[in-house]
């Protein structure tokens, strides 16, 4: 056993619902150890009742996001050595989402907003009538490409001040998805996306704080996507294309 392995981490973990409290655990420190490793150690060795969520463990599925020492992060790719202060970790569920228990939040509002922002593909007339040619260097393809790799982790949604102020705001992830969809020239109702994101608390509600871009674990820039939606909806509005 190395010297590092003999050390321990002091880990505070949120337990229970919104009226819960932090519970302290002592976890052996390893030289290479992710925050998800720490949570898994607690659940398997110290308290089997701890509720948390994970699947792939390699930064693809987006299910293990939590608040780590005050910041929303993907825990499977967050090394303890990078975030622990004096060997201390404070783990809480994501903000801005209903808490189910311990470290697990209800993601339903998050995904409902993806639907509200028309974050799904609508087929066009079909290849027999219109076969879209999409050159890789085309600007719209590049814009879609820049926004497409979202893993739905909810980190940006948790980090967004505007979401915390307005629970009807669509949020950075849904709007980022809408921007990717709007730039897909094969979509059969791109104007429908603009209508969806410009009604109610849509893209114009964003204050451009850029917390989403600052916290996104896969380095996307939802603020840039939202700015694109603001421009596109403004042009469409001036042309009268957003009226029913």
């Amino acid at each position: 056993m190395s010297a590092a392995a003999e050390k321990t981490l002091q880990v505070e973990v949120w337990r229970g619902g919104t009226d819960g409290a932090y519970e302290s655990f002592e976890v052996p420190a390893q030289e290479n150890q992710t925050v998800l490793d720490v949570v898994t150690y607690i659940q398997r060795n110290l308290d089997a009742a701890l509720a948390y969520r994970f699947a792939c463990r390699v930064g693809v599925c987006g299910s293990c996001a939590m608040t780590v020492n005050g910041r929303p992060r993907w825990t499977c790719r967050t090394h303890v050595s990078r975030v622990a202060k004096n060997g201390e970790l404070k783990l809480a569920p994501l903000q801005n989402l209903p808490l189910i228990r311990d470290l697990v939040t209800d993601m339903t509002p998050f995904f409902e907003k993806w639907q509200a922002a028309r974050g799904r593909f609508v087929p066009g007339d079909g290849p027999k009538d219109r076969f879209a040619q999409v050159p890789p260097e085309e600007k719209q393809r590049a814009d879609a490409n820049a926004a497409i790799e979202c893993i739905n982790c909810g980190v940006c949604y948790s980090a967004c001040d505007v979401v915390s102020w307005r629970d009807d705001y669509l949020g950075p992830a849904a709007l980022n998805r809408a921007w990717a969809g709007y730039n897909d020239v094969r979509d059969g109702d791109r104007n429908g996306i603009l209508k969806a994101v410009s009604s109610g608390a849509g893209c114009h509600t964003c204050h451009t704080h850029q917390s989403c871009a600052e916290h996104c674990p896969v380095s996307l820039n939802p603020t840039f996507s939202i700015a694109g939606l603001k421009r596109a909806t403004l042009k469409a509005s001036l042309k009268g294309e957003l009226s029913e």
Binding site: S199, H204, T205, K230, T233, L234, A236, S237, L242
Partner: peptide
């Protein structure tokens, strides 16, 4: 905020 208010 609507696009009209945003423009204004």
């Amino acid at each position: 905020m609507s696009p009209r208010l945003y423009l204004l």
